[in-house]
Amino acid sequence: MENKLKIRKFKDKAFFIAVCAFSALAAVPLVAIIVKVVMKGYKQLNMDFFTETSPTTFEAMIAKASGSLIPGGVLNGLTGTLIMVGIAAVISIPFGIMCGVYLSEKPKAAFSGLIRFLSELIQGIPSIIVGMIVYSWIVLPLGSYSALAGGVSLAIMMLPLVIRSTEETLKMLPSSLKEAGLALGCSYKSVILKILLPSAAGGLFTGVLLAISRVMGETAPLMLTALGSTLVNWDVTAPTSALPLLIWEFYNDPNLVDMIWSSSLLLLVIVLLLNLAAKAIVNKRRTA
């Protein structure tokens, strides 16, 4: 009896150690990625990196030959990402929130089932295919790659994320809130717009932030829609660069390899900050 108990205790301990070990292993890639990107990327991070456009291969070659840092920066990528994510947000937020409202209001309607199914399908479509579709919808008719096309492809990728987070957030609101509004003689419209959505604002904002951080690193659809540019471009109908596109371009140019790491670091930092902000909002809502 005594012995059996000992064996059981030992098994418990072994199991616990195994759980800890595997959890630690799971964190290894993340830590490795961050360490590698920071170690290799921090050197190029100076003022110029944020204020200059991307260097040409020739500029980089000369700089390397003289042993100095590669000149130039990623301003064209930063502004391009800003524009395209902006376009994506402007399109996907209103549509996504309206869809989410419908799903949470009519959870069992057949049409809701259809929307939910389609939105899951969109989420599952490989991003390169989204790029192809938008290429045929917008790039071909307009005759040019453009920030608009890039923004639309990102919007399609964002939409299911916004729909899902809106639905989940609204579902968490107590039904008594809606009843309270209706009992005061409010119209359905004002109950949704003035009571439910404001009460859910924190959760909706978190969902949007996560969706933005998720699509910000998308590269494949942008290759087929925005193409890229070496200039800072504010014209939404012209080819435009983006941070992930720059990383891809730097990768393809042996002279610019050092720039890969610093632009990756920047993208990683932005995405992590967005995620942390989203988390902070969730925590604040929980404690409030």
Partner: peptide, 8 residues
């Protein structure tokens, strides 16, 4: 209502 439900 049963539970107080002021608009948050």
């Amino acid at each position: 209502f049963q539970r107080p439900n002021p608009f948050p």
